[in-house]
Amino acid sequence: MANQPVIFIHGLWLHASSWQPWIDLFTAEGYAPVAPLWPGEKDTVAETRAHPDDVANFGIDEVTEHFAKIIEAMDIPPVIIGHSFGGLITEKLLGQGYGNSGVAIDPAQIKGVLPLPFRQLKSSFPVLDNPANIHKPIALTYEQFKFGFANQLTDEEAKELYDRWTVPSTVRPIFQAAGANFSLHSQAAVDTKNGDRGPLLLIAGGEDNTVPEVTTDATLKLYRDSNAVTELITFRDRGHSLVIDHGWRDVATEVLVWLGQQGLED
């Protein structure tokens, strides 16, 4: 896979630099990875925290188009790997014909996913309880991060990750995903029937409060009408922090193994 580009797409509330351990590992394995910033995001966590208004009010389509332009500038179609809302964007891009394969880790719910567990509602409530939040940059409190991301971690590790990686975020995508099944032209819609797309791997965390396992299982079922490869791996004891916590390498290794099985061109 020498020089095969990889584009990492983070989700809400984490900075792009949180992918750095993955970038180092994928580089060592011969890939050419990058983790671009979201619209309005600054080069560092500190700068992004200092300019929260710059990240506000971007929706799913705007963010998807942002990454599509980055991919269009690449000489070789990349592997697209996303976490949380980055996973949803990965699905959208792959369905639109971008990339040669995709990995959606704990992907936010797309249009057509019906299960809505209480813990998922509880995770989103600090945003959805006030409709005016749709226009604002929102930062998680430590308690919200602990419940939504780090429920499987010690307080010590959770606090370290919170201090190191979290940033304010646009929350418009959360409102769009929450109302997706009531909107004819929802931005959370994905072309799950596309049989010409590259292979897709979905990854679920069995103890994820933000995107519960049942949500990812339901996502997989929406791909049943596509002939393209769609597979699911579940890490039973992992929460939403699985891409940044002490066990990130286990997840990354499974992704590397899966990519190696897809017969992608160098």
Rank of each mutant, 00 (worst) to 15 (best):
L220S: 09
G206R: 13
G102N: 03
T210E: 11
V55W: 09
D54E: 11
I71R: 03
G112K: 09
I105W: 14
V171D: 10
T170V: 03
G260S: 00
G239D: 14
A178K: 12
A188Q: 06
S123Q: 06
Y98L: 01
W248V: 11
V127G: 05
H66W: 13
G59F: 03
Q187K: 15
I76D: 10
V127P: 03
T192M: 02
Y142L: 02
H15P: 03
A180C: 07
D54R: 10
H246D: 12
P21G: 05
L184P: 05
Y98S: 00
H10Q: 14
I244C: 05
A46M: 11
Q96T: 01
M74G: 13
T166W: 02
G247Q: 15
K69F: 03
A68H: 06
V63F: 00
E72F: 08
G59N: 10
N194G: 05
I70E: 08
V6Y: 02
Y98N: 00
D245L: 04
D191C: 04
R49T: 02
V211A: 10
G195Y: 09
P21K: 03
N130F: 09
D24L: 00
D155F: 08
G148A: 15
K111T: 10
S186W: 06
T216G: 14
A189P: 02
G87E: 02
T170H: 04
E156V: 08
V257A: 07
L232T: 09
G195V: 08
A178F: 14
F8I: 04
P21W: 09
Y162L: 01
V113K: 11
I76R: 15
T141V: 06
D225N: 12
W248K: 14
D54Y: 08
D54T: 05
L202M: 12
L220I: 08
E41L: 04
A28C: 02
I7N: 01
V127S: 08
P173Q: 05
R172I: 12
A56Q: 06
E41M: 14
P33K: 00
D106S: 15
P36F: 07
A204D: 12
E160L: 13
T154A: 07
V229Q: 14
G30W: 00
S18A: 12
H66D: 10
F175Y: 14
V229M: 13
A104T: 01
F147C: 06
Q187W: 12
L264N: 01
N227Q: 14
V214Q: 11
Y223S: 02
L116F: 15
A50N: 07
G87M: 02
L88A: 03
D24H: 10
H66S: 09
Y223W: 10
L264S: 01
T253P: 04
N209F: 10
F125W: 15
A178E: 04
V251M: 03
S124V: 08
P117H: 11
V255E: 04
K69N: 11
K42A: 09
P107V: 06
F235G: 09
I244E: 07
W22D: 05
A180F: 04
V103S: 07
K159L: 15
D43I: 11
G260R: 00
N133F: 13
K122E: 14
T48I: 06
